[in-house]
Design a protein around this nucleic acid. Structure first.
Length: 217
DNA sequence: CTACTGACAACGGGCGTCGG
DNA sequence: CCGACGCCCGTTGTCAGTAG
């Protein structure tokens, strides 16, 4: 409905400016600081791909319910979906059971002065798409790319039997990576002939170890 | 040094819910 | 019934890290 008005009473808003500092479900204070694994492995990407085909693009709640990607937030999944699709706007695929890689392949080949990319994703440069236009494209994509119900119903997703065990495994993996990082830093110090470990260990705070660890993939 | 990439932060629209 | 409120999620901005 969005009937909230600005102080001027001119522009309708869904939410008054100023309340934005309230933390919302999708507004993690810092995903980077809170998640063990901010990056995506190839395996996780494939799981997300299957989940999108199974539940439809943008049905994040169902994907989360399925527990096939424990630890991933909606924001992370949304961003990864944009990468797979090769475009930033996902509205025209909302709810469709499609293979995002098919769209990504097509988008990767698009060229021209009107094509603007950010992180290899095509971004919208023109005016915001009208509802009608989105609906039209949605129908077009549905007719062209959507899998049959039998196909997407047959897609099986991995489901961890014990989510806590999975988190524990992630912790263990993180510790192994930390240890490896320590070893590498020690080697660098040795090669440089610096006074060893102590200094560099102290420089490396816990937070940094958690957040700036190398990607798993 | 500069351009590019990859990741999170934040904004704002849409829409469902609820109370008067 | 209608308007206010608040949640969900798409979009865009920003910035640190990295490659050339």
């Amino acid at each position: 409905m969005s009937a909230v008005l600005t102080p001027e009473g001119m522009k309708p808003r869904s939410m008054p400016v100023g309340q934005r500092n309230v933390l919302r479900s999708n507004d993690s204070a810092s995903l980077w600081n809170c998640t063990l694994s901010p990056g995506w492995t190839q395996e996780e990407v494939q799981i997300l791909r299957k989940a999108l085909m199974r539940f439809g693009i943008g049905n994040w709640a169902k994907i989360i319910d399925s527990q096939c990607l424990i630890g991933k937030t909606i924001a992370q999944m949304n961003l990864q979906t944009q990468r797979m699709l090769g475009q930033q706007s996902t509205a025209e695929f909302a709810g469709l059971h499609i293979d995002p890689f098919v769209i990504g392949e097509l988008n990767s080949k698009k060229q021209g002065p009107h094509i603007k990319r950010k992180n290899n994703c095509i971004v919208n440069t023109g005016a915001k798409l009208s509802r009608e236009e989105i609906r039209r494209r949605l129908q077009e994509h549905k007719d062209t790319y959507e899998l049959s119900e039998a196909e997407w119903l047959a897609i099986e997703l991995p489901k961890p039997e014990d989510p806590l065990a999975l988190i524990e495994a992630k912790r263990k993996e993180l510790q192994e990576l930390r240890d490896e990082l320590d070893r590498v830093q020690q080697r660098i110090a040795d090669i440089k002939g610096d006074s060893p470990a102590k200094e560099s260990d102290e420089e490396m705070t816990d937070d940094i170890n958690v957040t700036k660890r190398p990607r798993v993939d």
